[in-house]
């Protein structure tokens, strides 16, 4: 691993931190790197002394909150599987807010609303299709019994309308099916993640 790679991975692992905090931590390690380099240490041995970028980042994330996080200061990053930023205390706190309900539930709620709108639209679409089909049939019967270009034209327009009304129905069904698959997957992922945590 090169120093650049180490710092890239370090920055990526600190993505959960606010920008100034991340810059501060990076500057700290960059300064140490430069100092060690100037003392004659090789890139490899410097990076070895830093340990893995993920562990170094975990130590910083752990100590980010002044209260709570600090209490675990003495422990090493390796001995703490809960170092994962996804299940740190900050995240646990964030779950309290209404905007920060577990993601799966939010997605499910939004999708339920979208599905309701789609269902309403579908009902309208079906009703329109049926009504206009019926009209088209009436005009067809009229044309057959009475003749006349006007009745035929009206029948064709009604048929066109019926097809037009059927289109949203088709798309609604299509996207609802896609949506149901997507939501199921998201909820499944969320449950799996909560179980892991």
């Amino acid at each position: 691993m090169t120093a650049q790679e180490w710092f890239n991975r370090f920055a990526a692992a600190l993505a959960a931190l606010p920008e100034p905090e991340r810059e501060r931590a990076e500057a700290y390690y960059r300064e140490l790197y430069s100092d060690k380099k100037e003392m004659g240490m090789s890139e490899g041995s410097i990076l070895l002394s830093f340990g893995s970028p993920e562990n170094a980042a975990a130590e910083i994330l752990n100590n980010f909150t002044e209260d709570g996080g600090d209490e675990r200061n003495g422990q090493t990053a390796d001995s703490m599987p809960e170092n994962n930023p996804l299940c740190s205390e900050e995240n646990a706190e964030r779950k309290d807010g209404i905007l920060n309900m577990p993601r799966g539930k939010v997605i499910a709620a939004v999708c339920a609303a979208a599905a309701a709108v789609l269902l309403g639209g579908t009902a309208l679409s079906v009703a329109g299709t049926l009504l206009l089909s019926e009209l088209a049939m009436l005009f067809a019967a009229g044309t057959f019994c009475l003749g006349g270009a006007e009745t035929l034209a009206m029948g064709v327009i009604a048929l066109g309308g019926a097809v037009f009304c059927a289109m949203p129905f088709y798309y609604a069904i299509k996207y609802m099916a896609k949506g149901v698959i997507w939501v199921t997957k998201k909820i499944y992922d969320d449950v799996a993640r909560e179980e892991r945590a």
Binding site: Y28, N62, N63, D70
Partner: peptide, 15 residues
């Protein structure tokens, strides 16, 4: 003492 141990100490003492 390691680099990763020193960082939070400095931050805390500064705070």
């Amino acid at each position: 003492i390691s680099e990763s141990t020193l960082y939070p100490i400095l931050k805390r003492l500064e705070g």
